[in-house]
């Protein structure tokens, strides 16, 4: 159907590899506990970055800090080249329109149907006809692999996997440039998790997304992530493709990538 520019495939927007989000010297703590200790991390345009770390190590806290939901003690967070602290209301909400977030628990609005959930950001941000909003909502519902009928359902009527998909559809409502996923496949069965990984990959290629994915799933790390960053003791202790992780000598990384579960995953492939 399409011809035109040559040699392009998938996710190449102008300037692949430039940092879309860069976190510098970030310190976050609660009370006298420091959770993130001078952490620095870049998320590059067009990549799927997997973020691993111990449970309770501060992965969600980092995500929430980048999103501006948790106050930071020091350090800077630059999103699309702008420091969020220096922006005014209007500029901030312009930035917020350009990211989508899938929360760990889904965070669908419980009193709205799936379709209304997806249309909520559309209605608030754009002036569209009801027909177009319906079409968009159903297109997103189908894109994330749900049936159209799911659009009329309330969140309490959905299964765990459907909730994840529906919240993904809502996160994608405004065609964001970057997608934050907090443990998207936890709580799904391995097949469901595999499908979800596949879906993320497809969407990333289709929409040219950048994806920041907090995950524990060794399968996801192997199959979909372009790059992995590992968090320990409040810092990023290693980052790079999966091979770098496997080669690392850090004790936690060795245990993580060479433990019994990891060996099982590897022998399968």
């Amino acid at each position: 159907m399409a011809n035109g520019e040559t040699m392009e495939q998938g996710n190449e927007e102008a300037g692949v590899g430039e940092p879309l989000i860069s976190v510098r010297d970030l310190v976050v703590g609660f009370g006298d506990r420091v959770i993130l200790d001078h952490l620095s991390l870049d998320i590059l345009r067009g990549e799927i970055l997997g973020f691993v770390g111990t449970s309770g190590g501060g992965k969600s806290v980092l995500t929430r800090t980048i999103l501006g939901l948790v106050p930071k003690r020091s350090g800077t967070v630059e999103v699309f080249g702008q420091d969020l602290d220096t922006l005014n209301e209007a500029q901030r909400s312009a930035v917020e329109r350009r990211w989508g977030v899938l929360f760990q628990q889904g965070a669908l609005f419980s009193s709205l149907t799936v379709k209304q959930n997806i249309q909520f950001p559309l209605r608030e941000n754009l002036k569209l006809s009801q027909k177009l909003m319906d079409d968009i909502a159903y297109a997103k519902i189908e894109m994330v692999g749900l049936k159209c009928e799911a659009g009329e359902k309330l969140p309490s009527e959905l299964s765990g996997g459907m909730i994840k998909r529906a919240s993904l559809a809502r996160a994608l409502a405004l065609d964001p440039e970057i997608l934050f996923l907090d443990e998207p496949t936890s709580g799904l069965d391995p097949i469901g998790a595999g499908d979800f990984d596949e879906l993320i990959r497809t969407l990333q290629q289709t929409l040219g997304l950048t994806v920041f994915m907090v995950t524990h799933d060794l399968d996801s790390l192997h199959t979909v992530c372009d790059r992995i960053a590992a968090l320990a003791d409040g810092k990023v202790i290693a980052q790079g493709p999966i091979e770098t992780m496997m080669a690392s000598t850090h004790p936690w990384l060795r245990a993580y990538f060479h433990g019994a579960r990891a060996r099982a995953v590897r022998s399968e492939r």
Binding site: E8, D134, Y138, A139, M143, G208
Partner: peptide, 23 residues
């Protein structure tokens, strides 16, 4: 004609979805 290659997948995706679903 002339559609940039990177949007090909997107258009295919759209052509597969919703033929006016009746809620």
């Amino acid at each position: 004609v002339g559609l940039k290659r990177r949007y090909g997948v997107l258009l295919q995706e759209m052509s597969r979805t919703g033929h006016d679903p009746q809620p």
